[in-house]
């Protein structure tokens, strides 16, 4: 696979064309993240369980390059799959989510040294290829940074 094909894997192309989790509703608590370099935008919401301990759904809207949009879609998919497995206790707690964000960031900043674990990240592991393209890491991080911002605000009680 050429570098370009590693970056634009079919999964990424598919998610950028048919995004998952797209669509916010009134009342969503959102974080808006923007890449000032290219104008990519992602506005993301974490929808929590009634007791506020688990992520039931990730919803988002945005515009921009295929990497930024596919990454938001793949993040939403990953959260949904975990929530659908909720009876097994797999829906994300704040700590689970933070662990995913940390691992994602570490892999994306590794310049191709650390691949995303396919067992944990599922289809989102296709974003591993981005880490060799330093200028694109910020695109892929947008949705995840939005989620982190929401976590920080939740922890601060706002």
């Amino acid at each position: 696979m050429s570098g370009l094909e590693q970056l634009y894997q079919q999964i990424i192309m598919d998610h950028s064309k048919s995004p998952h989790g797209y669509g916010l509703t009134e009342g969503d608590v959102t974080s808006h993240q923007r890449n000032p370099v290219c104008g990519d935008e992602v506005t993301l919401a974490l929808r929590w369980s009634a007791d506020g301990t688990r992520v039931e759904e990730v919803a988002w809207e945005g515009s921009g390059c295929s990497i930024s949009q596919a990454s938001a879609s793949l993040f939403a998919t990953l959260a949904t799959l975990a929530a659908e497995d909720a009876e097994a206790g797999n829906a994300w707690t704040p700590d689970d989510l933070q662990a995913f964000i940390d691992e994602f960031r570490e892999a994306l900043r590794s310049r191709g040294q650390i691949p995303l674990d396919e067992e944990r990240f599922g289809d989102a592991a296709a974003l591993s290829g981005v880490s060799k393209f330093v200028a694109r890491v910020k695109c892929a991080m947008l949705a995840w940074v939005a989620a982190e911002d929401l976590l920080t605000r939740k922890a601060a009680g706002s």
């Binding site: 370009l4 990519d40 694109r136 695109c139």
Partner: peptide, 12 residues
Amino acid sequence: VHAHDAGQVLDN
């Protein structure tokens, strides 16, 4: 095609 994606094809 977003400009960022187009530029990547040229960079390649």
